[in-house]
């Protein structure tokens, strides 16, 4: 018989984590299509969340896992990951896995960043679980002037809020 222990509960990261949780800007091997992933977080009032930490975990161009990064948001609620566009992982469309920590979040939020216009999005088994009218909230969109820049907006607590996952 396996002993099942009660897991340790989560608590908020609070506003002072910067003294310890230093950024990891180097995601590792960036072979493939280099991109800048610009993430911005807004709260329920549309105010930028300037004290969040975003962690990303993604595959490389060939679909092999192993790239981790973390950044804190600036006064505009923005952080920018210098990375490479992930490849497909098995049947899944290219995506970046995201965890968000912040004051006011008693536990982290999980979401995913997909890439708008990617043909394999149509067959992605996770996107298929998301109501069609909300899938757009999981899409990064290319910048009109520079297609290597992808913008991803995270909206907390709003009618148009980002899809968050129960992981």
């Amino acid at each position: 018989m396996i002993m099942e222990l009660i897991p340790t509960p989560s608590q908020t990261i609070g506003p002072f984590f910067h003294i310890c949780l230093t950024p990891q800007t180097d995601l590792g091997d960036l072979t493939g299509e280099r991109i800048r992933l610009v993430c911005r977080i807004l709260d329920g009032d549309g105010t930028p969340v300037n004290d969040a930490m975003i962690e990303v975990w993604q595959a490389g161009a060939a679909g092999e896992y192993g790239r981790f990064g973390r950044l804190c948001t600036n006064e505009d609620g923005v952080c920018v990951f210098e990375t490479a566009k992930p490849g497909r992982v098995a049947a899944q469309a290219p995506h970046v896995n995201v965890q968000i920590f912040a004051r006011g979040l008693l536990k982290q939020l999980f979401t995913r960043i997909y890439f708008e216009g990617e043909p394999s999005n149509l067959n992605d088994p996770i996107l298929a679980l998301v109501p069609e009218d909300r899938r757009g909230t999981l899409m990064a969109r290319p910048n009109a002037e520079d297609s290597s820049v992808w913008n991803f907006e995270i909206r907390l607590c709003a009618d148009s809020e980002t899809v968050f996952f129960d992981v």
Binding site: A59, Y65, V89, A90, L105, L156, C157, D159, F164, D166
Partner: peptide
Amino acid sequence: YASTVRRAPSKPLIFLPHTLSETSGP
């Protein structure tokens, strides 16, 4: 805890089956 009010999701979370994306890590 007042800071949760403008930051907590207002819609139900979507159940995510665990894939390699969730079961691998740094």
